[in-house]
Design a binder for these strands. Structure first.
Length: 191
DNA sequence: TCTGCGATAATA
DNA sequence: ATTATCGCAGAC
């Protein structure tokens, strides 16, 4: 049910499409189905935070697979990534959108500016806001669940034919087709 | 529905 | 200076 460490211990380009339709769960009851992901491939990927090696900010990205790397950007937003590959590789998958499943009231309360439930988790920073993920969750283990979060397989398989596109919001390696999303899902950030 | 822009601060 | 973004305003 809860994804085991071996699931994460693979190339992020393999993990990212397989993460589609898995469920991100907060221990407080909030949950959402993952509908959009991107792979970041470490020191060989100029768009990855780990491109120039390990720093204080990206340290978690070089940790054990199954940890959650949470980073701060644009002066006000948090985004989260399950760490993949082998420890020390610096590879991860950015969670870009969820279809909200449970705990919608708590999500709405966490995002007072949000008008429509469709937008609750539509975007990497929006989903972190809705789920209650920020600096306190950087480095938590999604496998043992001790940090209050886990990713579970509830039996819904990944789409047989996910949509593949270049990644969003980057300025380097812009042509690499390392974004995947569930076809025809209204909760995907940019269609 | 789409486009453009300002907010806001850590990082390198 | 740049940034793995968001929400609002204004146009259509």
């Amino acid at each position: 049910m809860v994804l085991e460490r071996a699931f994460y211990r693979r190339d992020p380009r393999t993990v990212a499409p397989e993460l589609l339709n898995k469920v991100l769960r907060h221990a407080d009851g909030r949950s959402g189905r993952i509908v959009e992901t991107e792979a970041y491939c470490g020191p060989t990927d100029p768009a990855a935070h780990s491109w120039r090696g390990r720093t204080a900010r990206n340290a978690t990205m070089f940790g054990m697979p199954g940890l959650l790397y949470v980073y701060f950007t644009y002066g006000m937003h948090w985004c989260c990534n399950p760490v993949c590959g082998e420890e020390g590789e610096g590879v991860a998958v950015l969670l870009r959108a969820l279809a909200p499943l449970d705990g919608l009231a708590a999500m709405r309360a966490a995002r007072p500016a949000c008008r429509s439930d469709r937008d609750l988790c539509r975007g990497p920073a929006r989903l972190c806001q809705a789920m209650g993920i920020d600096r306190a969750q950087d480095g938590i283990d999604l496998v043992d669940g001790a940090g209050g979060f886990s990713i579970v397989d509830d039996g819904v398989p990944p789409p047989a034919a996910p949509v593949v596109t270049p990644r969003v919001g980057i300025t380097r390696a812009v042509d690499e087709p390392w974004r995947w999303y569930v076809p025809n899902d209204p909760h995907v950030s940019r269609r």
